[in-house]
């Protein structure tokens, strides 16, 4: 089962090979097992550029 994090969607050649070989010839399961996880922010926030940093 492979997942991709939203902020880093590129996978390495090694990871790609692992992904292909995980379910042998059942590439349908490889496709079904590939998904993306998205984390919303843990709390309300402002842009870091707001005043207060480094004054």
């Amino acid at each position: 089962m492979k997942h991709q994090k939203a902020k880093n969607q590129k996978i390495s050649r090694k990871e790609a090979l692992n992904k292909i070989s995980k379910y042998g010839e059942n590439s349908i399961l490889t496709a079904l097992g590939t998904y993306l996880i998205l984390d919303p922010k843990k709390a309300q926030s402002h842009s870091p550029e707001n005043p207060g940093m480094g004054f």
């Binding site: 997942h3 496709a31 079904l32 097992g33 590939t34 998904y35 993306l36 996880i37 998205l38 984390d39 919303p40």
Partner: peptide, 14 residues
Amino acid sequence: SNEYLIVENTTATI
């Protein structure tokens, strides 16, 4: 987990 997963429809059914 408060995570959102984007999955294939078949995977979602499972």
